[in-house]
């Protein structure tokens, strides 16, 4: 059976896996974004708070994802919980770092002006600082998503959802008839998903970055 025949016969399963892969990445990315921006907003003002946030998130990133997921299994069990935890944690770093850099990069004279015309702390953040820091934050989200696409494949190790099942299934049965096809289908599926997500981010940028600061 060649690759296309394999895809043809297994397309139902492949589509389900692809959908689950995308949905897992998407949902974890939403959580990571919210959490990451929150951490950024809380910590960007103090110099040690910011570096603490950046160092601790990058420390997480140095743990091999396979090891991390393995370590989580005894704590939270198999399936969805370790997947969500791993993806969210790994997704945090680029968002946190870009959020802090972006917020710190806002022209101080604009913050001064915002204060000077009587904006409260909250309003300043929502109306001035976050909109101006949004392009770098969005870049962070984009980088995170690319990374999570790959890491999500590891989740299959903990019986998680997604295209990783194809890859792990294939790798486990190397030498059998469809082993290579399985690995290929999983990998190509992830690449296509990553490209689609990236295109979506370009569109999102077009829609959400105000015209006045678009480059």
């Amino acid at each position: 059976m060649n690759f296309w025949e394999y895809v043809g016969t297994r397309h139902q399963q492949l589509l389900t896996d692809t959908y689950q892969h995308a949905s897992a990445v998407f949902q974890c990315m939403v959580i990571a974004t919210l959490l990451g921006v929150l951490i950024g907003v809380v910590s960007y003002r103090s110099s040690w708070g910011g570096s603490l946030a950046i160092t601790s998130t990058s420390a997480i990133l140095t743990i091999p994802s396979l090891a991390a997921i393995g370590l989580l299994i005894p704590l939270v069990g198999l399936g969805v919980p370790p997947t969500v935890i791993i993806l969210t944690l790994y997704g945090l770093l680029p968002v946190v770092r870009n959020c802090i850099v972006g917020l710190r990069g806002v022209d101080p004279s604009l913050v001064d002006a915002a204060k000077g015309i009587g904006m409260s702390r909250m309003r300043r953040l929502l109306k001035v600082e976050l909109p101006l820091a949004w392009p770098p934050i969005l870049t962070g989200i984009r980088v995170s998503t690319q990374m999570l696409m790959g890491i999500a494949a590891i989740a299959a190790y903990a019986s998680g959802p997604g295209l990783g099942n194809e890859i792990f299934g294939g790798l486990a049965s190397l030498g059998s008839a469809n082993a290579i096809n399985k690995v290929l289908a999983g990998t190509i599926g992830i690449v296509i998903l990553a490209l689609l997500f990236d295109a979506a981010y370009v569109l999102l940028g077009r829609l959400t970055i105000p015209r006045g600061i678009r480059v």
Binding site: S109, L110, D112, A113, A114, K115, G116, I117, G118, M119, S120, K127, V128, P131, L132, P210, G212, I213
Partner: peptide, 30 residues
């Protein structure tokens, strides 16, 4: 201070206009 500043106009060097808002939005803020 927030209430106070809304009653005091404030103009600074290099205008301090918010680049992500239009001219009208900037003026309408206060």
């Amino acid at each position: 201070p927030v209430k106070l500043r809304r009653k005091i106009g404030y103009a600074i060097q290099s205008s301090g206009l918010f680049p992500h808002m239009t001219v009208a939005e900037n003026i309408a803020l206060v």
